[in-house]
Design a protein around this nucleic acid. Sequence first.
DNA 1: CTTTATATGGAATTTTTATTTCATTTATTG
DNA 2: CAATAAATGAAATAAAAATTCCATATAAAG
Lengths: 274, 274
Amino acid sequence: MSEKFIPPRDYDSLKTLMIARKPDLPRRLAQVAEFAVASPDELAFGTAATVAEMADVQPSTLVRFAKSLGYDGFSDLQTVFRSRLRDRWPDYDERLEALRKRSENDTHALFADFCNTAVASLRRLQDGVDPEELERAVAILAKARIIYLVAQRRAFPVAAYMAYALSKMRLPTVLVDNVASLGPEQMLAAGAEDAMVAISFTPYAPLTVEIANKAAERGVPVVAITDSAFSPLAHGAAARLDVVESDLGAFRSLSGTLCLAMALCVAAAEKKRG
Amino acid sequence: MSEKFIPPRDYDSLKTLMIARKPDLPRRLAQVAEFAVASPDELAFGTAATVAEMADVQPSTLVRFAKSLGYDGFSDLQTVFRSRLRDRWPDYDERLEALRKRSENDTHALFADFCNTAVASLRRLQDGVDPEELERAVAILAKARIIYLVAQRRAFPVAAYMAYALSKMRLPTVLVDNVASLGPEQMLAAGAEDAMVAISFTPYAPLTVEIANKAAERGVPVVAITDSAFSPLAHGAAARLDVVESDLGAFRSLSGTLCLAMALCVAAAEKKRG
DNA sequence: CTTTATATGGAATTTTTATTTCATTTATTG
DNA sequence: CAATAAATGAAATAAAAATTCCATATAAAG
């Protein structure tokens, strides 16, 4: 019935395959190929019935088409069209599942999964960040006298890295690390001519929220790096950058947040100079 | 049951509505709103069951949520999320194109560059890491009583993140942060039944090198995350993982190192348990 | 022109998915 | 603190979807 080919899992390869095969395909299957190349969106969103209607074939023909290309069926084929629209790799869910039932000593595969998750995060974030908000954030940091960095727990490494990068570029920086529970005191000197970067994701660390909002009340412009408009940091923020990281199991990637942080630092330093 | 509102048919209005309504919504419905705003792609593609799983609610809650907003049901609500992807896609290529021809003062483009650099780093690293060495490192960490983490300057955020992750997974951890210059003292209690992760890249932070080598001399197995066999950490290391990150200007990506660190932590925790 | 293989449409079947219902828990009000 | 209302989880049900099957049509080979 179907070939033993391993069918492509990404849209570009599939498109190439469909174009290559079309001449040899029976009439109705060729018709499907043509429609699929012309209207990949419909394939991604439609049901077998609606796609069949639009391509002017029977639903069963769609299943045959999918199988002739080596897929399990229409649903399997459809995942490839969907992967085109989202920045994830096609068999994400299955991989996650596989992750759970992994043999313990396959660390390298685990590492590869973390890498893939990070890449997915980065790709998604690249489109997701609002350029205007980013520009606003840079402007705030560029004109600040001192930049205060606040983050706890999972987000702390990002602030630590920013502290390193900003200091390297000679921008005065205070990392509010809450050593000896002096967090609240560490930013008492901050005023309207300074700026604060507050980083927090669900579940929001209370200290970060408290310090950021107190600073905002006192007129310190706060750049919030968080995950949505629902964040408790959102209210007082002069600029808000939303980062939604992919996660693998219980562990969220930090790659996107770090890239964003880095871009912020470098852009602010450049702006201040130039 | 449901309101007589005519619910929004475009994503932007829906998003606004969800943000506005969230505070008044019952707990689980608010949870759905939050998830929907954070991961609209999932809403577009997923089934009620998969979305429910990801948002950590029951499928029925999704239906209730949709109805509380005035939609017929989940399917009706979903069409709005799908329309968003349909509308958005066409200008994607143009955006990418615009991104390439950027002016220097475009922060968003800078951000994109950092993302691309990070992706390159990750891809390269994925092939570059030695699986055997990785396995050895995991074994060392898995049988350790306490894991000491040493890193300074640029590498410090990685150690900080490992400290967070390992603690979350209930592996006893000491982050040697050198607060009050107590770095050398922070690891005095370490012995052969413990383990140390030392992270350092050129130009190697003297303190990290000193602490790692002193630990090694005293019989503590050291896992070194560094950049080559020439690293001063190489000599005493029981396992050495080389990470070569791509860099953009003066700033090196940390993405690869972070992924590796994460994989190490999770693998070690799994091994210890299983 | 017959025979055989392949392709197709349409209905039947199976599987998946959304929705509803109801018992139980959690919050609210008097 | 009891009574009542609202919210929730889990299972039952209804709806929709994909897939398979089979009778028929079409093309290819002898």
